[in-house]
Write a protein that binds this DNA or RNA. Structure first.
Lengths: 157, 157
DNA sequence: CTTTGTGCAAAGAGTTTGCATTCGA
DNA sequence: TCGAATGCAAACTCTTTGCACAAAG
């Protein structure tokens, strides 16, 4: 897992794709690799500057756009009006947004994919990309259920 | 189904909720009831003005916001950057977006709902709202499959 | 008559872009 | 050196808001 998010590896990928390994690029990748999971531009800029490197907001936009085109970053549009970014780990995944805290959990469920494909096929379509977002609240823990040790059971990363 | 989208009925609902039955409200409801399925503000304004009633863009925003609060309209945020609006028919439903044409098909699948709930429960959550969008392309029709009669099979309205 | 809705223009948020300068290969 | 990347500010798109006026109940 640490290898997947290794910054140097990501920079290599970028260079292989013809991008210049600039300080901005490195810093954005580093911030995405071990910062908050789904930062927006401002958070990303703060994360980069927290690493001691100044960057203009416009450059953050340009770098993430570039990385998105390269397939290294995914741009998400939740219902907040602003875009959020995350490293594209190979595994595609969906999101569950905790309405109360704003936390975003990643998950993946093969059966869900299968059903979606079946539904699309019935309509005569082949799925190219999907967006599944579950907006939810924590369930009241029942006394009979364990409280800890399963909260992050299916979460990615 | 025709009864559900009857404008007078919708206006009654609005009045019952304390909204004033203004010309703008009526015209927007009428445009939503029998115009394009998922108009954005501009399209909605054009549809209203095509009915011979002038309306300011700001008023379209205000009317749809009001109707959304009232639960009569649903505001959708696809990946285009602009909001789209539709009448909230009782049945909640998901969307399949035709990448090539921009067409939006509505569908609903109980099994999909069930799986989503199961996944959320496994993470310790109860779903409040969900957003499922499938971005897809038309399948090449195989010679062995019927061409007509199933394209719109599961579509709502 | 009072409350709510309306139009217009201005403001706001998020994002993109033109241009001169800097930097990586 | 040369093309790509950067910073800055201005521009752009979508949406909201303040205010004076009009209309609904």
């Amino acid at each position: 897992m640490a290898g997947t998010t290794d910054v140097n590896t990501l920079v290599q990928e970028c260079r292989a794709l013809g991008l210049k390994a600039t300080e901005n690029l490195r810093a954005v990748l580093a911030a995405l690799a071990d910062g908050a999971r789904h930062p927006d531009v401002e958070e990303l800029r703060r994360a980069v500057e927290a690493r001691g490197h100044r960057i203009a907001l416009a450059s953050v936009y340009r770098v993430v756009a570039q990385l998105t085109r390269a397939g290294i970053v995914e741009t998400r549009h939740f219902e907040t009006g602003k875009s959020r970014y995350e490293l594209a780990r190979g595994q595609t995944h969906d999101h569950l947004v905790d309405i109360d805290t704003g936390d975003i959990l990643d998950f993946h469920d093969a059966a869900m994919d299968a059903i979606e494909e079946r539904v699309a096929a019935k309509l005569g379509y082949r799925i190219v990309r999907r967006r599944v977002e579950l907006y939810a609240v924590r369930m009241e823990p029942r006394a009979s259920l364990p409280l800890t040790g399963d909260g992050g059971k299916d979460e990615a990363t």
